[in-house]
């Protein structure tokens, strides 16, 4: 499984390096969303403002939206010119495909989150405190989000109607992860990381559960795609 996961992740990252969709489309989209939140809830920034209080939540909602795009992009690679048959005929372990695709999307999203954290810090006037908890929760939450997204993303292969299903299926399952990640970030940004460790445990439980479910469910879902 791990060999196949490395093969798939390497292939997806190589394609991304050449196509630059994450850099050229997903990242600008996410930054625009942060700006729009700023326009809707601003212009006041700094302590006491709505944007200051809601920074963590707005950041994670933005990441949630970017995850949908990144996952759809990841599976659109497999749908072009009938490549989904190629994936099924490849002989790759479905769990390996799941882990590989999830790892590639996670790597892209973690990089994006670094950018978004800096942008939101500047736009919303929020100092990035508790960096260790910010980083740890970001990594674990990203794994959880991407695991759910990848599990449902395979459903969207090769069918335009199914593409619209992805957010509908993904958002409810992602809600606990977004909630826990927001609580972690609120605690870290407030300079009280100790209050966030419990939420980090919650994030870890969801991440492990979603990865396990995805690894098992991906094969049957790929067959039905």
């Amino acid at each position: 499984m791990w060999r196949d996961a490395l093969l798939v992740a390497g292939k997806d990252l190589r394609i991304e390096a050449r196509s630059k969709v994450a850099v050229g489309q997903v990242a600008p989209f996410a930054v625009v969303v942060l700006v729009l939140f700023g326009l809707a809830l601003g212009p006041a920034v700094g302590p006491g403002s709505v944007l200051h209080a809601a920074t963590a939540g707005l950041f994670w909602v933005t990441v949630l939206l970017a995850t949908v795009l990144a996952v759809q992009r990841s599976f659109s690679l497999e749908a072009s010119d009938g490549a989904s048959d190629g994936l099924r005929m490849s002989g790759l372990d479905p769990a390996g495909i799941f882990v590989g695709k999830a790892a590639a999307v996670s790597a892209e999203l973690v990089s994006l989150e670094v950018l978004l954290a800096l942008v939101s810090s500047i736009l919303y006037g929020r100092h990035l405190a508790g960096v260790a908890l910010l980083l740890a929760s970001a990594v674990v939450a990203t794994v959880g989000l991407v695991a759910v997204g990848t599990t449902y993303g395979v459903v969207s292969i090769g069918s335009r109607q199914r593409e619209t299903l992805l957010p509908l299926l993904f958002f409810p399952m992602a809600a606990p992860v977004v909630l826990a990640a927001t609580k972690c970030w609120e605690a870290a940004l407030a300079g009280t990381p100790g209050r966030g460790t419990g939420w980090l445990d919650v994030l870890a439980v969801f991440a492990v559960a979603y990865v396990a479910i995805g690894a098992v469910a991906f094969g049957p879902l790929l067959e039905d795609a």
């Binding site: 292939k11 190589r14 394609i15 050449r18 196509s19 690679l77 072009s80 010119d81 009938g82 490549a83 048959d85 190629g86 994936l87 099924r88 005929m89 490849s90 002989g91």
Partner: peptide, 18 residues
């Protein structure tokens, strides 16, 4: 069986960017 079979279908099942 799939690992032992080669199928050339109507679609080429290739990755455009590679």
């Amino acid at each position: 069986v799939r690992r032992e079979v080669g199928l050339l279908g109507h679609a080429t099942s290739l990755y455009d960017e590679l």
